[in-house]
Write a protein that binds this DNA or RNA. Sequence first.
DNA 1: CAGTCGATTCACT
DNA 2: GTGAATCGACTGA
Length: 215
Amino acid sequence: MITAPGPLDGTPLDRSFFDRPVLDVAPDLLGRVLVRETDDGPIALRLTEVEAYAGPADPGSHAYRGRTARNAVMFGPPGYVYVYFTYGMWHCMNLVCGPPGTASAVLLRAGEITEGAELARKRRGTSRRDSDLAQGPARLATALGVDRALNGADACPPRPEPFRMLTGAPADPDTVRNGPRTGVGGEGAAHPWRFWIDGDPTVSPYRAHVPRRRR
DNA sequence: CAGTCGATTCACT
DNA sequence: GTGAATCGACTGA
């Protein structure tokens, strides 16, 4: 039996897609589809907001002070997933870009769940609006069931697990905007390396960096 | 080895 | 808009 193509079908992105300068890859990821497979079922996310982190020279990047146990995946080959744990509660997910050693990555900040919204809502809370399911990097990771166990996972695997990236429908460059990265302070705030699809309801609100108050 | 603070989110006012 | 939650990586002594 032949079924119509759905959001889970499509051409997987080749690893070479990620083997380019991160500032080229980041805007090119908008509109493309990340598929996450688990025992609970598949879920598909159309990316609407990302941020580029450009290696050891980027003051906003985890790679800024060189390689550590946490950021080691960033220093490896492109097309792999870098997951970190933050604020004692949340996970955020990146895709490594550029040749090995470049230590660049794209933070996946927001997207539209195009398949598996029921599963996402089970993870995120039953009363969530659709546009809120993956509106923010930690919400996105939660919706996809991503945690540190997936740090280093292949986003371009021979078999479609645990992730695959599909070409999707790349965003029209005329609709792509860019500006400073959310929550990034210091020197890193100067770089306008946040990219999003203008007017998309799933894009998260911009917030400037706020230094934590002393207790 | 103790102090600091984070690529955040949520509840509450 | 403000503050709490919550923990571990990183820093510098």
